[in-house]
Measured scan of single mutants.
Amino acid sequence: SEEELEEFAKEVLRRGITIIVNGIRITEVEIFVKVLREILEKR
């Protein structure tokens, strides 16, 4: 749901943790923004 997305976004921003994806360091915020864009483009 959109509320869950908002909560996830807030949690990500609070933690600001960097994770490893395919050997490249990407912040969770960047991943969230990318996923959010993909979701919005599909609408």
Score class of each variant (00 low, 15 high):
8 F>V: 02
13 L>M: 06
39 I>Q: 05
38 E>C: 10
21 V>A: 04
15 R>I: 05
15 R>S: 13
10 K>I: 09
28 E>R: 08
3 E>I: 10
23 G>H: 05
8 F>H: 03
12 V>I: 13
29 V>I: 10
28 E>A: 12
36 L>T: 02
21 V>C: 03
12 V>D: 00
26 I>C: 04
29 V>T: 03
41 E>Q: 11
11 E>G: 05
5 L>T: 01
30 E>P: 04
38 E>K: 06
29 V>H: 04
21 V>I: 15
6 E>M: 15
37 R>H: 04
8 F>D: 01
6 E>Y: 15
42 K>G: 13
5 L>W: 08
32 F>P: 00
20 I>S: 05
42 K>P: 04
9 A>W: 14
2 E>H: 12
11 E>S: 10
20 I>M: 11
22 N>T: 06
19 I>F: 05
18 T>C: 04
38 E>H: 10
9 A>R: 03
30 E>L: 11
5 L>H: 01
32 F>H: 01
31 I>P: 06
41 E>M: 07
18 T>E: 13
42 K>T: 09
4 E>R: 11
43 R>Q: 12
6 E>R: 15
24 I>D: 04
40 L>N: 02
13 L>H: 02
19 I>T: 01
12 V>G: 01
42 K>F: 14
23 G>S: 04
10 K>S: 04
14 R>G: 12
42 K>V: 07
1 S>A: 08
32 F>N: 00
18 T>M: 12
35 V>W: 14
27 T>M: 06
20 I>L: 09
35 V>T: 05
22 N>I: 08
16 G>M: 13
13 L>W: 09
13 L>K: 01
20 I>N: 02
12 V>P: 00
32 F>A: 03
33 V>S: 04
34 K>L: 07
22 N>P: 03
6 E>D: 04
7 E>M: 12
7 E>V: 08
28 E>P: 04
9 A>N: 01
27 T>S: 11
2 E>P: 13
26 I>E: 03
9 A>H: 03
40 L>C: 10
17 I>W: 15
15 R>L: 14
19 I>R: 00
39 I>V: 05
35 V>R: 02
22 N>F: 05
42 K>S: 12
30 E>K: 10
5 L>R: 01
3 E>Q: 13
38 E>D: 12
14 R>I: 06
26 I>P: 05
1 S>I: 12
28 E>M: 05
5 L>N: 01
7 E>K: 12
16 G>Q: 07
38 E>W: 13
9 A>F: 08
30 E>F: 08
40 L>K: 05
32 F>G: 00
42 K>R: 12
22 N>H: 06
2 E>V: 13
41 E>N: 14
36 L>H: 00
23 G>R: 03
43 R>S: 08
17 I>T: 09
25 R>C: 09
17 I>Y: 15
28 E>S: 15
3 E>S: 13
33 V>G: 02
35 V>P: 00
40 L>T: 02
11 E>I: 06
40 L>Y: 07
39 I>A: 04
12 V>Q: 05
13 L>G: 01
